[in-house]
């Protein structure tokens, strides 16, 4: 809060090196003014901005996030990274809306390196909008704890979401280049399914052979394992990529995908010794 008691939002902008950063530079060169609470982070391409970055910011006190790139079809890079930004922001806005956060808190704009005045105009307009909205959560009527919980929930799902939506997130369709078409890229239903139907992976202690092949493949070390001990998926760490499911030998079939139901509680300490089929046979 400023000395006048006026709400001073925390706002970050992630802008591409080639166009928007140049525009922001030119804005400075031309001495166009905008609020000092907006801070900028340089990335090489707006397509580098990740869903995680946006959620990380909101979860850590940001009231608004700005993403700036080159005008459509003017991207410095061959793959037209600003389309990626468009898909990502479009998805992110839907996710924010889903958890009750005003999607206006995330804004994507194209600013060329020659558009200093446009950069200032956007900053001023966006800042005014956010000042009017008020602090994150408060204007949405969500309590602090609840807000954190919701943000955390989606943050956890981001790897899964990326995986499920990888085609759409890498869509470069000039025919859809207007914002509206991209806005409608992800339907509400799709978002709901993504979140509600996100699976969990569980290792059936009865079937697990303690072979460690799933643990070895898990990209995030989410499988608590030791040789000949029943493996357990650490649900806190798990990113729901399903690698363990494919890793577990089909003859064991120990990893189970659970959708729409709670994950059974972890195996009690005394039962973590693997009940090996061949051991039994030998015995």
């Amino acid at each position: 809060m400023s000395s006048k008691g006026k709400f001073e939002p925390k706002m970050l902008g992630m802008i591409c090196n080639w166009c928007c950063y140049g525009g922001a530079d030119l804005c400075g060169v031309s001495r166009f003014q905008y609020p000092a609470y907006i801070k900028l982070i340089r990335v090489m391409c707006s397509g580098r901005v990740d869903l995680k970055h946006i959620f990380l910011a909101f979860a850590n006190g940001a009231d608004a996030m700005f993403v700036g790139g080159c005008h459509i079809n003017d991207c410095h890079y061959n793959p037209e990274g600003n389309y990626d930004a468009l898909s990502m922001v479009s998805l992110c806005k839907k996710l924010l809306a889903y958890i009750g956060i005003n999607p206006k808190r995330l804004r994507l704009e194209w600013v060329s390196a020659g558009e200093g005045i446009r950069f200032a105009a956007i900053m001023n307009e966006f800042a005014k909008e956010i000042e009017q909205l008020g602090p994150l959560g408060k204007s949405e009527g969500i309590k602090e704890n609840e807000l954190q919980a919701r943000l955390e929930k989606v943050t956890k799902l981001i790897p899964y979401i990326k995986l499920k939506k990888k085609e759409k997130l890498a869509l470069h369709d000039p025919a859809l280049a207007d914002h509206q078409s991209y806005k409608d890229l992800f339907s509400g239903e799709e978002i709901e399914t993504l979140i509600l139907k996100a699976p969990s992976y569980w290792i059936d202690p009865e079937k697990c052979q303690g072979c460690m092949s799933c643990a070895a493949r898990c990209p995030v070390d989410a499988i608590v394992s030791a040789k000949l001990q029943v493996h357990v998926v650490d649900q806190g760490k798990c990113i729901k990529c399903g690698t363990c499911l494919t890793a577990c030998s089909s003859k064991f079939g120990a990893v189970t995908k659970i959708t729409g139901a709670p994950v059974p509680p972890p195996t009690p300490e005394d039962r973590i010794q693997v009940a090996r089929k061949n051991n039994k046979k030998a015995a």
């Binding site: 391409c45 397509g47 580098r48």
Partner: peptide, 8 residues
């Protein structure tokens, strides 16, 4: 060095 792969 655009990093598009990174964000995917």
């Amino acid at each position: 060095g655009c990093g598009l792969c990174n964000s995917k």
